[in-house]
Design a protein around this nucleic acid. Structure first.
Length: 499
RNA sequence: GGUACCGUGGCCGAGUGGCUAGGCAGAGCUCUGCAAAAGCUCCUACAGCAGUUCGAAUCUGCUCGGUACCUCCA
Protein backbone atom coordinates (compact mmCIF):
# COMPACT_ATOMS: atom_id res chain seq x y z
CA UNK A 1 0.00 0.00 0.00
CA UNK A 2 1.18 3.50 -0.83
CA UNK A 3 2.32 5.90 1.85
CA UNK A 4 0.29 8.87 3.00
CA UNK A 5 1.40 12.10 1.39
CA UNK A 6 0.19 15.50 2.46
CA UNK A 7 0.66 18.91 0.94
CA UNK A 8 2.60 21.01 3.39
CA UNK A 9 1.88 24.72 3.01
CA UNK A 10 5.18 25.45 4.72
CA UNK A 11 7.34 23.69 2.15
CA UNK A 12 4.79 24.07 -0.66
CA UNK A 13 5.33 20.45 -1.50
CA UNK A 14 3.63 17.13 -1.05
CA UNK A 15 5.54 15.27 1.62
CA UNK A 16 5.39 11.77 3.00
CA UNK A 17 3.64 11.91 6.32
CA UNK A 18 5.73 10.70 9.23
CA UNK A 19 4.53 11.46 12.72
CA UNK A 20 6.95 12.67 15.37
CA UNK A 21 5.97 9.87 17.71
CA UNK A 22 5.34 6.63 15.84
CA UNK A 23 1.73 5.58 16.07
CA UNK A 24 0.56 8.93 17.39
CA UNK A 25 -0.58 12.10 15.68
CA UNK A 26 -1.07 15.50 17.24
CA UNK A 27 -3.35 17.72 15.19
CA UNK A 28 -4.36 21.28 15.96
CA UNK A 29 -7.07 22.97 13.94
CA UNK A 30 -8.00 26.62 14.36
CA UNK A 31 -11.57 26.76 15.59
CA UNK A 32 -14.18 29.45 15.14
CA UNK A 33 -14.53 32.82 16.78
CA UNK A 34 -17.85 32.51 18.49
CA UNK A 35 -18.93 36.10 18.22
CA UNK A 36 -21.56 35.21 15.66
CA UNK A 37 -23.43 32.36 14.05
CA UNK A 38 -21.51 29.71 12.16
CA UNK A 39 -21.77 30.04 8.41
CA UNK A 40 -21.15 28.00 5.30
CA UNK A 41 -17.48 28.95 5.36
CA UNK A 42 -17.07 27.18 8.68
CA UNK A 43 -18.36 23.97 7.16
CA UNK A 44 -15.34 23.53 4.94
CA UNK A 45 -12.40 23.29 7.36
CA UNK A 46 -14.24 21.31 9.98
CA UNK A 47 -15.55 18.79 7.49
CA UNK A 48 -12.16 18.62 5.76
CA UNK A 49 -10.27 18.02 8.98
CA UNK A 50 -12.95 15.67 10.22
CA UNK A 51 -12.19 13.45 7.24
CA UNK A 52 -8.46 13.81 7.84
CA UNK A 53 -9.01 12.88 11.48
CA UNK A 54 -11.13 9.90 10.49
CA UNK A 55 -8.60 8.75 7.92
CA UNK A 56 -5.61 9.02 10.24
CA UNK A 57 -7.56 7.07 12.82
CA UNK A 58 -8.42 4.48 10.20
CA UNK A 59 -4.72 4.16 9.38
CA UNK A 60 -4.25 3.11 12.98
CA UNK A 61 -2.86 6.29 14.45
CA UNK A 62 -3.91 7.38 17.87
CA UNK A 63 -4.84 10.95 17.09
CA UNK A 64 -5.15 13.77 19.55
CA UNK A 65 -7.30 16.31 17.76
CA UNK A 66 -7.33 19.74 19.36
CA UNK A 67 -9.64 22.43 18.06
CA UNK A 68 -10.07 25.65 19.94
CA UNK A 69 -12.94 28.00 20.54
CA UNK A 70 -11.97 31.64 20.26
CA UNK A 71 -14.18 33.24 22.83
CA UNK A 72 -11.99 36.12 23.88
CA UNK A 73 -11.11 39.25 22.04
CA UNK A 74 -12.46 42.55 21.08
CA UNK A 75 -15.71 41.48 19.56
CA UNK A 76 -19.07 42.93 20.29
CA UNK A 77 -22.50 41.70 19.51
CA UNK A 78 -23.32 42.07 15.85
CA UNK A 79 -24.82 45.36 14.84
CA UNK A 80 -25.05 46.70 18.33
CA UNK A 81 -21.65 48.19 18.84
CA UNK A 82 -22.57 51.72 17.94
CA UNK A 83 -25.64 52.07 20.05
CA UNK A 84 -24.02 50.39 23.03
CA UNK A 85 -21.60 53.18 23.33
CA UNK A 86 -24.22 55.84 23.66
CA UNK A 87 -27.11 54.06 25.26
CA UNK A 88 -27.04 53.05 28.90
CA UNK A 89 -30.22 51.19 28.34
CA UNK A 90 -28.60 49.11 25.66
CA UNK A 91 -25.83 48.27 28.05
CA UNK A 92 -28.39 47.05 30.56
CA UNK A 93 -30.08 44.89 27.96
CA UNK A 94 -26.91 43.52 26.54
CA UNK A 95 -26.09 39.91 27.06
CA UNK A 96 -23.32 38.92 29.40
CA UNK A 97 -20.19 38.33 27.33
CA UNK A 98 -20.10 34.68 28.28
CA UNK A 99 -23.79 34.38 27.52
CA UNK A 100 -23.13 35.56 24.01
CA UNK A 101 -20.21 33.21 23.59
CA UNK A 102 -22.19 30.28 24.96
CA UNK A 103 -25.07 30.94 22.60
CA UNK A 104 -22.89 30.83 19.51
CA UNK A 105 -20.78 27.95 20.79
CA UNK A 106 -23.94 25.91 21.23
CA UNK A 107 -25.10 26.74 17.73
CA UNK A 108 -21.71 25.80 16.35
CA UNK A 109 -21.71 22.47 18.13
CA UNK A 110 -25.20 21.79 16.90
CA UNK A 111 -24.23 22.52 13.30
CA UNK A 112 -21.10 20.37 13.53
CA UNK A 113 -23.23 17.49 14.79
CA UNK A 114 -25.56 17.99 11.82
CA UNK A 115 -22.55 17.55 9.58
CA UNK A 116 -21.69 14.34 11.39
CA UNK A 117 -18.27 15.60 12.41
CA UNK A 118 -16.59 13.82 15.29
CA UNK A 119 -15.94 16.16 18.22
CA UNK A 120 -12.26 16.91 18.80
CA UNK A 121 -10.36 15.19 21.59
CA UNK A 122 -9.85 18.50 23.33
CA UNK A 123 -11.72 21.72 22.65
CA UNK A 124 -9.95 24.40 24.66
CA UNK A 125 -11.27 27.93 24.98
CA UNK A 126 -9.17 31.06 24.87
CA UNK A 127 -10.79 32.41 28.02
CA UNK A 128 -9.91 29.22 29.84
CA UNK A 129 -6.23 29.67 29.05
CA UNK A 130 -5.49 33.28 29.93
CA UNK A 131 -2.69 32.37 32.35
CA UNK A 132 -0.98 30.16 29.78
CA UNK A 133 -1.10 33.00 27.32
CA UNK A 134 0.26 35.50 29.82
CA UNK A 135 3.10 33.14 30.65
CA UNK A 136 3.96 32.80 27.00
CA UNK A 137 3.85 36.55 26.42
CA UNK A 138 6.15 37.08 29.39
CA UNK A 139 8.57 34.57 27.93
CA UNK A 140 8.63 36.48 24.67
CA UNK A 141 9.21 39.77 26.48
CA UNK A 142 12.03 38.19 28.50
CA UNK A 143 13.59 36.93 25.31
CA UNK A 144 13.57 40.47 24.02
CA UNK A 145 11.12 40.00 21.18
CA UNK A 146 8.20 41.94 22.59
CA UNK A 147 7.70 45.31 24.19
CA UNK A 148 5.04 46.95 26.33
CA UNK A 149 3.37 50.25 25.54
CA UNK A 150 0.54 51.69 27.66
CA UNK A 151 -0.53 48.31 28.95
CA UNK A 152 -0.41 46.60 25.58
CA UNK A 153 2.31 44.21 24.45
CA UNK A 154 3.49 43.90 20.86
CA UNK A 155 5.63 41.36 19.10
CA UNK A 156 8.72 42.89 17.53
CA UNK A 157 8.51 41.54 13.99
CA UNK A 158 11.44 43.56 12.69
CA UNK A 159 13.77 42.17 15.30
CA UNK A 160 12.46 38.66 14.77
CA UNK A 161 12.94 38.93 11.03
CA UNK A 162 16.61 39.75 11.52
CA UNK A 163 17.35 36.23 12.63
CA UNK A 164 14.33 34.30 11.39
CA UNK A 165 12.37 33.78 8.23
CA UNK A 166 9.20 35.74 8.96
CA UNK A 167 6.92 35.33 5.95
CA UNK A 168 8.05 31.93 4.80
CA UNK A 169 4.74 30.22 5.41
CA UNK A 170 2.63 32.85 3.71
CA UNK A 171 5.13 33.87 1.06
CA UNK A 172 5.38 37.36 2.44
CA UNK A 173 8.42 39.50 1.93
CA UNK A 174 9.36 41.12 5.17
CA UNK A 175 10.45 44.43 3.65
CA UNK A 176 7.08 44.79 1.97
CA UNK A 177 5.35 44.20 5.24
CA UNK A 178 7.46 46.79 6.96
CA UNK A 179 6.82 49.33 4.24
CA UNK A 180 3.15 48.83 3.53
CA UNK A 181 1.49 52.16 3.19
CA UNK A 182 -1.80 51.08 4.65
CA UNK A 183 -2.81 53.01 7.72
CA UNK A 184 -4.85 51.42 10.44
CA UNK A 185 -6.39 52.72 13.58
CA UNK A 186 -4.64 52.41 16.88
CA UNK A 187 -1.26 51.62 15.45
CA UNK A 188 0.59 54.58 16.91
CA UNK A 189 1.80 52.41 19.76
CA UNK A 190 3.60 49.94 17.56
CA UNK A 191 7.26 50.44 16.82
CA UNK A 192 6.64 49.05 13.41
CA UNK A 193 3.48 48.53 11.45
CA UNK A 194 4.21 44.83 10.94
CA UNK A 195 4.24 44.24 14.70
CA UNK A 196 1.23 42.42 16.11
CA UNK A 197 -0.45 42.52 19.49
CA UNK A 198 0.21 39.86 22.08
CA UNK A 199 -1.84 41.63 24.70
CA UNK A 200 -4.20 44.57 24.37
CA UNK A 201 -5.06 46.97 27.15
CA UNK A 202 -8.84 47.09 27.55
CA UNK A 203 -10.64 50.38 27.65
CA UNK A 204 -13.04 50.61 30.62
CA UNK A 205 -16.17 50.01 28.51
CA UNK A 206 -14.74 46.89 26.96
CA UNK A 207 -16.81 43.83 27.69
CA UNK A 208 -14.08 41.27 28.33
CA UNK A 209 -10.86 41.82 30.24
CA UNK A 210 -8.50 40.10 32.64
CA UNK A 211 -5.73 41.26 34.95
CA UNK A 212 -2.18 40.85 33.71
CA UNK A 213 1.32 42.07 34.55
CA UNK A 214 0.63 44.91 32.11
CA UNK A 215 -2.78 45.86 33.47
CA UNK A 216 -6.37 44.96 32.57
CA UNK A 217 -6.70 43.70 29.06
CA UNK A 218 -7.25 40.78 26.74
CA UNK A 219 -4.97 38.52 24.72
CA UNK A 220 -4.03 39.16 21.11
CA UNK A 221 -5.54 36.97 18.47
CA UNK A 222 -2.56 34.79 17.63
CA UNK A 223 -1.26 33.92 21.07
CA UNK A 224 -4.14 31.67 22.11
CA UNK A 225 -3.45 29.04 19.49
CA UNK A 226 0.23 28.99 20.33
CA UNK A 227 -0.43 28.68 24.04
CA UNK A 228 -3.09 26.01 23.75
CA UNK A 229 -1.40 23.90 21.11
CA UNK A 230 1.76 23.98 23.19
CA UNK A 231 -0.11 22.95 26.29
CA UNK A 232 -1.95 20.00 24.78
CA UNK A 233 0.30 18.87 21.96
CA UNK A 234 3.75 19.96 23.06
CA UNK A 235 6.35 22.26 21.63
CA UNK A 236 6.16 20.60 18.27
CA UNK A 237 3.33 18.52 16.92
CA UNK A 238 2.39 16.93 13.61
CA UNK A 239 -0.39 18.81 11.89
CA UNK A 240 -1.60 22.35 12.17
CA UNK A 241 -4.66 23.08 10.10
CA UNK A 242 -7.11 25.79 9.22
CA UNK A 243 -8.46 27.89 6.41
CA UNK A 244 -6.11 29.43 3.90
CA UNK A 245 -7.10 32.86 5.04
CA UNK A 246 -5.33 32.14 8.30
CA UNK A 247 -1.98 31.72 6.60
CA UNK A 248 -1.25 35.36 7.17
CA UNK A 249 -1.01 36.85 9.63
CA UNK A 250 -2.36 34.26 12.02
CA UNK A 251 -0.22 31.21 11.35
CA UNK A 252 2.82 33.21 10.39
CA UNK A 253 2.61 34.90 13.77
CA UNK A 254 2.06 31.63 15.57
CA UNK A 255 5.28 30.34 14.08
CA UNK A 256 7.13 33.46 15.22
CA UNK A 257 5.78 33.27 18.78
CA UNK A 258 6.48 29.59 19.18
CA UNK A 259 9.90 29.89 17.65
CA UNK A 260 10.87 32.48 20.24
CA UNK A 261 9.37 30.49 23.12
CA UNK A 262 10.41 26.98 22.11
CA UNK A 263 13.00 27.42 19.43
CA UNK A 264 11.04 25.61 16.77
CA UNK A 265 8.23 25.75 14.27
CA UNK A 266 5.28 24.39 16.25
CA UNK A 267 4.04 22.10 13.50
CA UNK A 268 5.63 19.72 11.03
CA UNK A 269 2.84 19.81 8.48
CA UNK A 270 0.74 22.89 7.83
CA UNK A 271 -2.46 21.99 6.06
CA UNK A 272 -4.82 24.63 4.73
CA UNK A 273 -8.19 24.23 3.13
CA UNK A 274 -9.25 26.65 0.43
CA UNK A 275 -12.20 28.99 0.61
CA UNK A 276 -15.81 28.64 -0.36
CA UNK A 277 -16.93 31.29 -2.80
CA UNK A 278 -20.37 32.49 -3.76
CA UNK A 279 -20.68 33.60 -7.34
CA UNK A 280 -16.93 33.67 -7.49
CA UNK A 281 -16.50 35.85 -4.42
CA UNK A 282 -15.19 34.68 -1.12
CA UNK A 283 -17.84 34.49 1.49
CA UNK A 284 -17.06 36.80 4.32
CA UNK A 285 -18.34 39.50 6.58
CA UNK A 286 -16.78 42.20 4.48
CA UNK A 287 -18.61 41.02 1.35
CA UNK A 288 -21.92 40.81 3.10
CA UNK A 289 -22.68 37.48 1.44
CA UNK A 290 -22.53 35.18 4.42
CA UNK A 291 -24.95 32.28 4.52
CA UNK A 292 -25.48 31.06 8.06
CA UNK A 293 -25.69 27.34 8.58
CA UNK A 294 -29.14 27.59 10.11
CA UNK A 295 -30.28 29.38 6.96
CA UNK A 296 -28.69 26.76 4.77
CA UNK A 297 -30.54 23.97 6.54
CA UNK A 298 -33.84 25.86 6.48
CA UNK A 299 -33.55 27.54 3.09
CA UNK A 300 -34.26 30.88 4.70
CA UNK A 301 -31.90 33.12 2.76
CA UNK A 302 -32.55 35.08 -0.44
CA UNK A 303 -29.77 33.37 -2.39
CA UNK A 304 -31.08 29.90 -1.52
CA UNK A 305 -33.67 28.30 -3.77
CA UNK A 306 -34.40 25.67 -1.17
CA UNK A 307 -33.19 24.09 2.05
CA UNK A 308 -30.16 21.82 1.85
CA UNK A 309 -29.60 18.82 4.04
CA UNK A 310 -26.35 18.91 6.04
CA UNK A 311 -25.22 15.69 4.37
CA UNK A 312 -25.65 17.30 0.98
CA UNK A 313 -23.30 20.07 2.09
CA UNK A 314 -20.83 17.54 3.42
CA UNK A 315 -20.96 15.55 0.20
CA UNK A 316 -20.70 18.72 -1.88
CA UNK A 317 -17.55 19.74 -0.02
CA UNK A 318 -15.97 16.30 -0.32
CA UNK A 319 -16.59 16.20 -4.05
CA UNK A 320 -13.91 18.84 -4.43
CA UNK A 321 -10.32 18.50 -3.30
CA UNK A 322 -9.84 20.54 -0.11
CA UNK A 323 -7.09 22.62 -1.66
CA UNK A 324 -9.27 24.03 -4.45
CA UNK A 325 -11.73 26.84 -4.10
CA UNK A 326 -15.29 25.64 -4.11
CA UNK A 327 -17.91 27.79 -5.75
CA UNK A 328 -21.32 27.68 -4.23
CA UNK A 329 -24.48 27.80 -6.31
CA UNK A 330 -27.96 26.39 -6.09
CA UNK A 331 -27.36 24.42 -9.26
CA UNK A 332 -24.21 22.82 -7.89
CA UNK A 333 -25.84 21.96 -4.58
CA UNK A 334 -28.86 20.45 -6.25
CA UNK A 335 -26.59 18.36 -8.43
CA UNK A 336 -24.85 17.21 -5.28
CA UNK A 337 -28.17 16.39 -3.69
CA UNK A 338 -29.16 14.12 -6.54
CA UNK A 339 -25.74 12.57 -6.75
CA UNK A 340 -25.66 11.76 -3.06
CA UNK A 341 -29.11 10.22 -3.21
CA UNK A 342 -28.05 7.97 -6.07
CA UNK A 343 -24.84 6.98 -4.38
CA UNK A 344 -26.56 6.25 -1.12
CA UNK A 345 -29.18 4.07 -2.77
CA UNK A 346 -26.46 2.05 -4.41
CA UNK A 347 -24.84 1.68 -1.00
CA UNK A 348 -28.09 0.50 0.54
CA UNK A 349 -28.57 -1.94 -2.30
CA UNK A 350 -25.10 -3.27 -1.69
CA UNK A 351 -25.97 -3.90 1.94
CA UNK A 352 -28.86 -6.15 0.92
CA UNK A 353 -26.79 -8.26 -1.44
CA UNK A 354 -25.42 -11.61 -0.41
CA UNK A 355 -23.03 -13.89 -2.21
CA UNK A 356 -22.99 -17.67 -1.97
CA UNK A 357 -19.84 -19.30 -0.59
CA UNK A 358 -16.93 -20.19 -2.80
CA UNK A 359 -18.07 -18.17 -5.78
CA UNK A 360 -15.35 -17.73 -8.37
CA UNK A 361 -15.30 -14.77 -10.68
CA UNK A 362 -17.60 -15.56 -13.58
CA UNK A 363 -16.62 -12.32 -15.26
CA UNK A 364 -12.90 -11.90 -14.78
CA UNK A 365 -12.79 -8.50 -16.39
CA UNK A 366 -15.52 -7.08 -14.20
CA UNK A 367 -14.04 -8.72 -11.16
CA UNK A 368 -10.69 -7.04 -11.82
CA UNK A 369 -12.32 -3.71 -12.48
CA UNK A 370 -14.24 -3.78 -9.22
CA UNK A 371 -11.16 -4.81 -7.31
CA UNK A 372 -9.17 -1.98 -8.85
CA UNK A 373 -11.81 0.67 -8.17
CA UNK A 374 -12.09 -0.41 -4.56
CA UNK A 375 -8.38 -0.63 -3.91
CA UNK A 376 -7.87 2.82 -5.32
CA UNK A 377 -9.82 4.27 -2.40
CA UNK A 378 -6.70 3.91 -0.24
CA UNK A 379 -4.41 5.26 -2.90
CA UNK A 380 -6.51 8.34 -3.46
CA UNK A 381 -6.77 9.11 0.22
CA UNK A 382 -3.05 8.63 0.61
CA UNK A 383 -2.54 11.19 -2.12
CA UNK A 384 -3.30 14.23 0.02
CA UNK A 385 -6.79 13.11 1.00
CA UNK A 386 -8.35 13.14 -2.45
CA UNK A 387 -11.95 12.54 -1.48
CA UNK A 388 -13.12 13.73 -4.90
CA UNK A 389 -11.48 10.77 -6.55
CA UNK A 390 -12.77 8.31 -3.98
CA UNK A 391 -16.29 9.51 -4.69
CA UNK A 392 -15.73 9.28 -8.45
CA UNK A 393 -14.81 5.61 -8.03
CA UNK A 394 -17.85 5.02 -5.90
CA UNK A 395 -19.97 6.44 -8.68
CA UNK A 396 -18.31 4.06 -11.10
CA UNK A 397 -19.18 1.19 -8.81
CA UNK A 398 -22.79 2.27 -8.42
CA UNK A 399 -24.02 0.88 -11.77
CA UNK A 400 -22.30 -2.42 -11.03
CA UNK A 401 -23.98 -2.66 -7.65
CA UNK A 402 -27.38 -1.69 -9.03
CA UNK A 403 -27.03 -4.21 -11.83
CA UNK A 404 -26.16 -6.92 -9.34
CA UNK A 405 -29.23 -6.01 -7.37
CA UNK A 406 -31.51 -6.05 -10.40
CA UNK A 407 -29.80 -9.27 -11.51
CA UNK A 408 -28.77 -7.67 -14.79
CA UNK A 409 -25.37 -8.92 -13.77
CA UNK A 410 -25.42 -12.25 -11.96
CA UNK A 411 -23.85 -12.19 -8.53
CA UNK A 412 -21.59 -15.00 -9.64
CA UNK A 413 -19.80 -12.58 -11.95
CA UNK A 414 -17.71 -11.61 -8.94
CA UNK A 415 -15.56 -13.79 -6.80
CA UNK A 416 -16.50 -14.08 -3.18
CA UNK A 417 -13.33 -12.26 -2.16
CA UNK A 418 -13.98 -9.35 -4.47
CA UNK A 419 -17.57 -9.09 -3.39
CA UNK A 420 -16.60 -9.07 0.26
CA UNK A 421 -13.90 -6.53 -0.40
CA UNK A 422 -16.39 -4.30 -2.17
CA UNK A 423 -18.94 -4.57 0.57
CA UNK A 424 -16.48 -3.98 3.34
CA UNK A 425 -14.52 -1.09 1.81
CA UNK A 426 -17.50 0.71 0.35
CA UNK A 427 -19.12 0.83 3.75
CA UNK A 428 -15.90 1.71 5.51
CA UNK A 429 -15.24 4.60 3.19
CA UNK A 430 -18.67 6.06 2.73
CA UNK A 431 -19.63 5.92 6.39
CA UNK A 432 -16.54 5.77 8.55
CA UNK A 433 -14.04 7.78 6.54
CA UNK A 434 -16.09 10.18 4.47
CA UNK A 435 -18.58 10.32 7.32
CA UNK A 436 -21.67 10.38 5.14
CA UNK A 437 -25.09 9.39 6.36
CA UNK A 438 -28.47 8.80 4.82
CA UNK A 439 -30.33 11.94 3.86
CA UNK A 440 -33.70 10.32 4.12
CA UNK A 441 -35.60 11.00 7.28
CA UNK A 442 -36.30 8.92 10.32
CA UNK A 443 -36.72 5.22 10.21
CA UNK A 444 -39.26 4.42 12.78
CA UNK A 445 -40.99 1.16 13.33
CA UNK A 446 -44.54 2.46 13.35
CA UNK A 447 -44.02 4.21 10.03
CA UNK A 448 -42.49 1.07 8.63
CA UNK A 449 -45.55 -0.88 9.67
CA UNK A 450 -47.88 1.61 8.02
CA UNK A 451 -45.81 1.54 4.85
CA UNK A 452 -45.86 -2.22 4.71
CA UNK A 453 -49.63 -2.11 4.96
CA UNK A 454 -49.92 0.45 2.17
CA UNK A 455 -47.55 -1.50 -0.02
CA UNK A 456 -49.57 -4.64 0.52
CA UNK A 457 -52.80 -2.85 -0.43
CA UNK A 458 -51.15 -1.37 -3.48
CA UNK A 459 -49.85 -4.72 -4.58
CA UNK A 460 -53.31 -6.20 -4.27
CA UNK A 461 -54.78 -3.33 -6.27
CA UNK A 462 -52.20 -3.78 -8.96
CA UNK A 463 -52.90 -7.49 -8.98
CA UNK A 464 -56.50 -6.88 -9.99
CA UNK A 465 -55.47 -4.04 -12.33
CA UNK A 466 -57.11 -1.45 -10.14
CA UNK A 467 -54.63 1.20 -11.17
CA UNK A 468 -56.79 4.03 -9.86
CA UNK A 469 -56.21 2.77 -6.34
CA UNK A 470 -52.56 1.90 -6.81
CA UNK A 471 -51.79 5.31 -8.34
CA UNK A 472 -53.75 7.06 -5.63
CA UNK A 473 -51.59 5.47 -2.96
CA UNK A 474 -48.40 6.35 -4.78
CA UNK A 475 -49.47 9.90 -5.56
CA UNK A 476 -50.73 10.70 -2.10
CA UNK A 477 -47.56 9.41 -0.52
CA UNK A 478 -45.51 11.36 -3.01
CA UNK A 479 -47.32 14.53 -2.00
CA UNK A 480 -46.22 13.85 1.57
CA UNK A 481 -42.64 13.40 0.51
CA UNK A 482 -42.60 9.63 0.51
CA UNK A 483 -41.66 8.11 -2.81
CA UNK A 484 -42.63 4.61 -3.77
CA UNK A 485 -40.77 2.74 -6.42
CA UNK A 486 -41.79 -0.43 -8.15
CA UNK A 487 -38.90 -2.74 -8.47
CA UNK A 488 -38.09 -5.49 -10.83
CA UNK A 489 -39.61 -8.71 -9.64
CA UNK A 490 -42.68 -7.09 -8.12
CA UNK A 491 -41.14 -5.63 -4.99
CA UNK A 492 -41.60 -2.06 -3.82
CA UNK A 493 -39.26 0.24 -1.99
CA UNK A 494 -39.88 3.56 -0.39
CA UNK A 495 -37.88 6.53 0.79
CA UNK A 496 -38.82 9.49 2.92
CA UNK A 497 -37.41 12.81 1.85
CA UNK A 498 -35.72 14.76 4.57
CA UNK A 499 -37.87 17.69 5.56
C1' G B 1 0.63 48.63 -5.87
C1' G B 2 3.14 43.94 -3.72
C1' U B 3 2.69 38.48 -3.29
C1' A B 4 0.43 33.92 -4.49
C1' C B 5 -2.98 30.97 -6.96
C1' C B 6 -6.40 29.82 -10.84
C1' G B 7 -8.76 29.83 -15.89
C1' U B 8 -11.20 22.23 -18.06
C1' G B 9 -17.30 20.25 -22.20
C1' G B 10 -24.47 23.58 -20.74
C1' C B 11 -23.26 23.66 -15.07
C1' C B 12 -20.07 21.63 -10.90
C1' G B 13 -15.61 19.58 -10.75
C1' A B 14 -10.77 15.30 -10.89
C1' G B 15 -6.39 15.34 -13.49
C1' U B 16 0.41 11.77 -12.97
C1' G B 17 3.32 14.89 -20.53
C1' G B 18 0.86 9.91 -24.42
C1' C B 19 -4.66 5.91 -22.46
C1' U B 20 -12.94 7.92 -22.07
C1' A B 21 -12.16 10.96 -14.42
C1' G B 22 -16.75 11.51 -11.99
C1' G B 23 -21.42 14.11 -10.81
C1' C B 24 -25.67 17.11 -12.57
C1' A B 25 -28.36 18.55 -16.88
C1' G B 26 -29.64 17.03 -22.10
C1' A B 27 -30.79 13.12 -26.20
C1' G B 28 -31.99 8.03 -27.55
C1' C B 29 -33.07 3.01 -26.10
C1' U B 30 -34.43 -1.14 -22.51
C1' C B 31 -37.52 -2.26 -18.47
C1' U B 32 -42.70 -0.73 -16.84
C1' G B 33 -50.20 -0.77 -16.73
C1' C B 34 -48.32 4.26 -16.11
C1' A B 35 -44.56 6.78 -13.48
C1' A B 36 -40.17 7.00 -10.89
C1' A B 37 -35.87 4.50 -10.24
C1' A B 38 -32.38 1.49 -12.52
C1' G B 39 -29.44 -0.29 -16.80
C1' C B 40 -27.23 0.68 -21.69
C1' U B 41 -25.66 4.28 -25.44
C1' C B 42 -24.51 9.35 -27.04
C1' C B 43 -22.77 14.49 -25.86
C1' U B 44 -14.61 13.97 -25.92
C1' A B 45 -13.43 19.86 -23.25
C1' C B 46 -9.02 21.88 -21.49
C1' A B 47 -8.72 31.04 -21.93
C1' G B 48 -5.52 33.01 -26.21
C1' C B 49 -0.76 33.18 -28.65
C1' A B 50 4.14 31.35 -29.17
C1' G B 51 7.80 27.77 -27.64
C1' U B 52 10.10 22.94 -25.62
C1' U B 53 8.93 17.77 -27.07
C1' C B 54 8.12 12.19 -31.30
C1' G B 55 3.84 13.77 -28.34
C1' A B 56 1.05 18.99 -23.71
C1' A B 57 -4.99 20.22 -20.55
C1' U B 58 -0.42 18.78 -17.97
C1' C B 59 6.42 21.98 -18.91
C1' U B 60 8.30 27.39 -20.41
C1' G B 61 7.27 32.52 -21.91
C1' C B 62 3.91 36.30 -23.06
C1' U B 63 -1.21 38.23 -23.41
C1' C B 64 -6.14 38.40 -21.62
C1' G B 65 -9.52 37.26 -17.65
C1' G B 66 -10.55 35.89 -12.51
C1' U B 67 -9.70 35.07 -7.29
C1' A B 68 -7.22 35.26 -2.66
C1' C B 69 -3.85 37.43 0.90
C1' C B 70 -1.43 42.09 2.34
C1' U B 71 -7.16 44.37 7.78
C1' C B 72 -11.31 40.78 11.38
C1' C B 73 -12.00 36.27 8.67
C1' A B 74 -12.69 29.16 8.05
Amino acid sequence: MSELKVYNSYSREKEIFKPITPGHVGMYVCGPTVSGESHLGHARPYITFDVIYRYLTHLGYKVRYVRNITDAGHFEEEGRAAEDKISKKAILEKLEPMELVQKYTNLYHWAMAQFNTIPPSIEPTATGHITEQITMIQKIIDAGYAYEVNGSVYFDVKKYAEGHDYGKLSGRIIDDLLETTRTLEGQEEKRDRADFALWKAAPPEHIMHWPSPWGEGFPGWHIECSAMSNKYLGEQFDIHGGGMDLLFPHHESEIAQSTICNGKNPARYWIHNNMITINGKKMGKSYNNVIKLTELFSGDNPVLEKAYHPMVIRFFILQTHYHSTLDFSNEALQAAEKGLRRLWEAYENLGKLEIPDNTTAGDKELDEKVKKLVNEFDEFMNDDFNTAKVLANMFELAPVINSLKDKIIPISALSQDTFNLLKEKFGLYIEDILGLKSVSAADNDKLKGVMELLIEIRKEAKGRKDFATSDRIRNQLSAMGISLKDEKGGGMSWTVEAS
